[in-house]
Structures are given as C-alpha cells and as structure tokens.
C-alpha cells in the first residue's frame, strides 16, 4: 500500500517545464544560470505569451543560443537584454519597464483602487452622519 502510494506520488511530481535542449546548456553553471534568468524575462515573439525559456519555437531556441553566446563573449546581463530590446522593442520584455508610455499600465490600478477607497470612505461617513441625524430625531 505504501509502495503504491509512493509510485503514485512520483507521477504527481511537478516536472520542470522548460524548452532548453541539453545541447544548449552551457558548461559553466554560473553563466547558464544567468542565461536562464535572462531567457525567462524575454518574450517569444512567435508564441507571444511564452518566454523564450518556455517556448519550443525555433526562433526562441535561436534566441536562447544567442543569449548564451553573448554571455560567453563576456557581455553583462543588461547588455544582452538591451541587444534583444534594440531589435524587438520593449514588447519582448515580459516585465514592461516603467516609463512615460507605461505609467498608466503600472500605476493605473493603484489610482483606480484609491478612487474606490475614497468612494467607500465617503459612503460610510455619510451613512454615519445620516444615522446620527436619525438618532437625534428619534431621541428628540
């Protein structure tokens, strides 16, 4: 029984779902780790809601290889990301940068939540005043 449970448990193990082929992996584990981190933040432009780390698309694979080649050549993480952005635009960044054009995207929800909170405060304050007025009338 215990064995059966263990066997079933193995099937439930979450398997790492990434598309990196064994042949692409760099020998240097530090560089590979950096490459993985960069790849996770870059959008695959073919299958747009996946990162190049997740995607099986050919172009994503070629981009992963390019990222690794540039790291091996000594580029910084930022330089690698900047190169890809210079070709594909901010769109490839899964985390859009904060700048004038994206202010609404980043802070719009906060502003709307604040407006909602303000509305709630006003509503309850009015209720309270109303209740107080009624109490006063009843009391008289």
């Amino acid at each position: 029984m215990k064995q059966l449970f263990l066997i079933l448990a193995i099937f439930l193990l979450p398997l790492a779902a990434n598309a990196v082929n064994p042949g692409e992996i760099l020998k240097d584990p530090v560089l590979e780790k950096r490459a993985r981190a960069i790849s996770k933040g870059l959008r695959c432009v073919v299958c747009q809601n996946q990162s190049i780390d997740d995607s099986d698309a050919q172009l994503a694979r070629d981009l992963r290889v390019l990222v690794r080649e540039q790291l091996v050549a000594g580029d910084s993480d930022q330089a690698v990301v900047d190169y890809v952005v210079s070709r594909y635009g901010d769109f490839v960044l899964l985390r859009p940068p904060v700048k004038a054009a994206t202010l609404v995207l980043w802070f719009g929800p906060v502003v709307i939540a604040l407006i909602g909170a303000m509305g709630l405060v006003l509503f309850f304050r009015r209720q309270k005043r109303y209740a107080a007025e009624i109490n006063k009338e009843v009391g008289e």
Binding site: V45, V46, Q58, L59, D62, L63, V65, L66, V84, R87, Y88, G89
Partner: peptide, 13 residues
C-alpha cells in the same frame, strides 16, 4: 540557419 540575420532585423516570422 541560426537566425543571426533574422534576429538582427528583429524578424518574428
């Protein structure tokens, strides 16, 4: 073959 030119031009398809 390795998308070097395609990536340089920001090609997606």
């Amino acid at each position: 073959p390795k998308s070097k030119g395609a990536i340089a031009f920001g090609v997606s398809g």
